[in-house]
């Protein structure tokens, strides 16, 4: 394959990865933005999404139907788990930033070990719901990956619409800017927190469901998306939705291209270097506002 098609393939791979990364990072930045919580266990919601997707697909049997069930039921189960975690752990720590970091580190290991006990150490694959290849002049491309990008794009749009245009989104933004004043205007802040935490977890879980036919469901698979999400969220600006999405595309696509032409390690090195540069020269992130 000559350079042109090679680059095109790298760009396509990078774009699909970027869409999935954008979903995951959006969940992380949303939780941080509204609740001021750094959720170290965010990648585990991604992993849980994938593992439950395997479970549902396995239960149903038929790949297309199984995937459909998984893409709906898996985020709901994970969102429910997030609600329980909010109630049982985060609220008890009164959402203090330091305490919740330590708590979510613990949570990361608890979730991993639970999955290891009940699901096992194997990486299991799920069959893609559709099985067509898009034939380009130079190479064929997995149709499912295009579906992943499409679903992710729809979800990103839906999340943006929900936050910018609906009453629920307005309530969330008000809580984000000033939770005390929000309470003084009848906004039940603890219920908003619970909803945002569940929503963040569900976004990661959907990303996990989408990725599982491409990669595999494995109990340690949450670490990579966690690291990448943090890179994206720091570059984009903690709490900035627009920043997270733009940074996800910068990191995702450059990761795809550099991985194909050089090595995946180099792309991680460059991404981490970029984080360091951002932290030195623009600590609030490229699109972050000043600290409130």
């Amino acid at each position: 394959m000559s350079l042109g098609p090679h680059l095109l393939l790298a760009l396509m791979e990078g774009t699909v990865a970027a869409f999935v990364l954008a979903l995951t990072a959006l969940g992380l930045t949303l939780v941080f933005g509204v609740m001021r919580i750094v959720n170290v266990a965010h990648g585990e919601f991604f992993m849980l999404g994938a593992v439950f997707a395997w479970a549902f697909a396995h239960l149903v049997g038929n790949p297309a139907l199984g995937f459909l069930v998984a893409v709906i039921a898996s985020p709901i189960v994970v969102g429910g788990a997030a609600l329980v975690i909010d109630r049982a752990i985060l609220r008890r720590f009164n959402y203090q930033p330091e305490a919740t970091i330590v708590a979510t580190i613990g949570l990361l290991y608890i979730i991993q070990q639970l999955v290891l006990i009940f699901y096992g150490p194997d990486a299991r694959s799920v069959e893609a719901p559709i099985n067509f290849r898009v034939q380009l002049p130079w190479f064929g491309y997995s149709g499912y990956k295009l579906v992943v990008a499409g679903i992710a794009a729809l979800l990103l749009l839906a999340t943006w619409y929900g936050i910018a245009k609906t009453k629920l989104g307005l309530v969330m933004r008000a809580t984000q800017f000033d939770s005390e004043t929000a309470q003084a205007f009848g906004i039940p802040v603890d219920r908003v927190y619970a909803a945002v935490f569940a929503l963040g977890a569900m976004l990661a879980a959907i990303a996990g469901v989408l990725i599982v036919p491409i990669k595999q469901a494995y109990y340690l698979m949450g670490l990579d998306p966690l690291l990448l999400s943090f890179i994206v969220v720091i570059i984009g600006g903690l709490g900035s939705l627009r920043g997270a999405i733009i940074a996800a595309f910068v990191i995702g696509i450059s990761d795809g291209v550099i991985s194909v032409f050089f090595s995946p390690n180099l792309s991680k090195i460059l991404a981490t270097l970029l984080v360091a540069l951002v932290l030195i020269f623009r600590p609030e992130g490229l699109f972050g506002g000043k600290a409130r």
Binding site: K167, L170, V171, R173, A174, F177, D178, E180, T181, A182, Q183, A184, F185, G186, I187, P188, V189, G289
Partner: peptide
């Protein structure tokens, strides 16, 4: 959050507007 619903309007010190939201959104809240 249930106190204002009884009919108490509060105008805090330093105004505490949701300064990044629009005027309309502030009123909407």
């Amino acid at each position: 959050h249930a106190v204002p619903r009884q009919g108490i309007g509060y105008c805090p010190q330093g105004r505490r507007l949701f300064s990044e939201l629009t005027v309309e959104e502030n009123l909407q809240i």
